[in-house]
Design a protein around this nucleic acid. Sequence first.
DNA 1: TAAGTTGTGTACGATACCGCACAGACGCTA
DNA 2: TAGCGTCTGTGCGGTATCGTACACAACTTA
Lengths: 246, 246
Amino acid sequence: MFITTAQVTNHNYLLTAVQTDEFERLKPHLELVQMPLGSVLYESASRLQHAWFPTTAIVSLQYIMEDGASTEIAGVGNEGMLGVSLLMGGAATSSRAIVQTGGCGYRIKAGSVLHEFNRTESLQRLSLLYIQALITQMSLTAACNRHHSIEQQLCRWLLLTIDRLSSNELIMTQELIASMLGVRREGITEAAGNLKNAGFINYRRGHITILDRSGLESLSCECYKVVKKEFDCLLSTYTTTQHSHS
Amino acid sequence: MFITTAQVTNHNYLLTAVQTDEFERLKPHLELVQMPLGSVLYESASRLQHAWFPTTAIVSLQYIMEDGASTEIAGVGNEGMLGVSLLMGGAATSSRAIVQTGGCGYRIKAGSVLHEFNRTESLQRLSLLYIQALITQMSLTAACNRHHSIEQQLCRWLLLTIDRLSSNELIMTQELIASMLGVRREGITEAAGNLKNAGFINYRRGHITILDRSGLESLSCECYKVVKKEFDCLLSTYTTTQHSHS
DNA sequence: TAAGTTGTGTACGATACCGCACAGACGCTA
DNA sequence: TAGCGTCTGTGCGGTATCGTACACAACTTA
């Protein structure tokens, strides 16, 4: 498999790092699908039918409480996968996965991915690496929820989202961001207003444009840098420890 | 290996569920050690030297921020293990592990546990199951931090701790609980005072006694029940899917 | 027993965030 | 162009938690 510029939208780092010969075996099971904004890949406590490897899409993992309140616990882009619990012997999961930025991704049937995980050494190794990075991100989210202000968290969230996109504009309502961060919509309106006044972002109804990354970084909590570093580290580990076919 | 009543303090559910023949291979690497209150098993970003399987000890996983603020992201008792990142290809971890209730546990060298993980089918399967439960607990913690009051969280925390103990008294200062929940000590004093007035707990300097479990449950957020259920489920999965030697 | 250390109780203003209510603006559809 | 639904801006009182400060009580050690 060769990733050319024309195919760059079909690129998932985890998949790409799977060894060439093993990837050939995996390939027939992979299906490139649309992942439209707002679609729910799985609900909490539902049985997983597939695993996904996003390419251009970004997915938000959320925990939903009994009263409907939600909290994002991690984000997944083309550095990772969804449905890791399939690999761990549980068919269900405790979270909801909802597409936060529309795009594409590879899909693979639940049965196939488990079968391949067990017989494909490099997929197994890479998945475990990814799961560890995911755990780190979740820990950080828990701590960030506790200690940092809405404005700081909004900066972190915008930066992490922008980092996974090729553009500097994201299609996203304040309402949606609020539900991800688990705060009131008005809280986001206020924080976003501050960022706009500072000249760091601009926005109109459902669209946010990042104007000044470094400005956001200066207002963000440390959590952004830590997650970023973790991901950079993850991506280099994907490829350095073993031959890649990309 | 037979767990008799005299040995019951040496019992870790995960280890016990490892298949008999495979366990025999694991056994020489296991070392039963004291895990005294307050001792730090590993710091964040430090290189892991061992993995641990608590028997009577309870360990708190915390994320420490740059300014020193801490947040508990999960607790580990005799249902699980510490140092899961060793199994996942990373030698370091992003959290701190600190003994929250003194006791005993099995320790195994980092090199040995990775080696055995790769060649011991049941250990691998059980570890992955445990990691999934750990992820669930972490998700819940993130959401609970966001949405629930100090009093609710204190109830959850007390219940989860008591569930892992044989006694109904725990040795624990309010200061320590505060650092785990990531709140001010005064917040715990107030919440604990309310629980005392309600007759649900009693305490003196460094000791807390649970008087009324169901009272605590009624004030706790849903998170307690969810984690409890997850653990019950985990323990039954440990043993039902495969023969156990306990 | 005395001195020192550590844990707990209490108070008070500051502040971040919530819940609610409502007005207005944007953008889609007919 | 008009109408409608959705998104955003704003205000206001209520509340949980924070930061700080200090008094006192319980245990430890000399």
